[in-house]
């Protein structure tokens, strides 16, 4: 995973609360393999009309938006479904950071696992950033080490869990980390199963047993 330290890039303002994962990627696109590139599905129904015609006024269709790597939005960003495809859509579009006053829990974990920084800011600070960005892509500076964001004259700090910060700064991957603990897991599993033997899944004698 690509580490994040400093982003000097373009930011876009998505001035809406509760941008849930169903909006970030409508369910009908999730049958596609990742190799097709999920960026094309990002916010699809928000930025297209029913005939699939792009809404030219939408922020992602403004000149320069294709180069934007930071999205600023309002509270409860990424709420809802656990679909990691919502993060794939953002990442494949080119985003490396989302700034909001709060995030859906599962979305934030998924983001970190894909090298997308979920930067949490105070609600007032989110409003200041949204105003500073305005309705066109604009320069933004994000510093993960210092936990700071700057747009023009507006400078705000953001919070992130120290564990996630370290992971993003280093581009670490969990599976590699965990496999270092393989022996501990094996020992735990043996002791756990001895203490709670019923948790071992015992297939029913007849697979057709049912209880009405």
């Amino acid at each position: 995973m690509q580490p994040i330290t400093v982003l000097d890039t373009l930011g876009v303002a998505l001035a809406a609360a509760n941008v849930d994962t169903d909006q970030l990627i409508p369910a009908r696109f999730m049958k596609e393999p990742r190799s097709v590139g999920y960026g094309q599905f990002l916010l699809y129904d928000v930025r297209h009309d029913e005939q699939g015609t792009p809404d030219a006024s939408f922020i992602l269709h403004r000149p320069g938006a294709g180069d934007a790597e930071v999205m600023v939005s309002r509270r409860n960003f990424g709420a809802g479904s656990s679909r990691e495809a919502a993060v794939y859509a953002l990442v494949d579009y080119g985003f490396r950071c989302v700034v909001a006053p709060s995030f859906g829990d599962i979305f934030a974990s998924n983001a970190v696992n894909n090298g997308l920084l979920p930067a949490m800011v105070e609600e007032d600070d989110a409003e200041r950033l949204l105003s500073a960005l305005g309705d066109a892509p604009a320069a933004i500076h994000v510093d993960l080490d210092k936990q700071a964001i700057r747009v023009a004259e507006v400078e705000v700090s953001f919070s992130i869990s120290p564990v996630w910060r370290t992971k993003l700064l280093n581009g670490w991957d969990d599976i590699d980390m965990t496999r270092q603990h393989a022996d501990t897991i094996t020992d735990f599993s043996a002791q756990y199963t001895a203490q709670f033997p019923w948790t071992a899944a015992q297939p029913p004698e007849s697979t057709l047993i049912s209880k009405g």
Binding site: S82, R83, E84, A85, V87, I106, S109, N110, N113, N114, D174, I175, T178, R179, A182, I185, S189
Partner: peptide
């Protein structure tokens, strides 16, 4: 609920 990266992690390590 967990995302796909975490599903892969659980599959690989329980």
């Amino acid at each position: 609920g967990i995302g796909a990266s975490e599903v892969a992690h659980v599959l690989a390590t329980q």
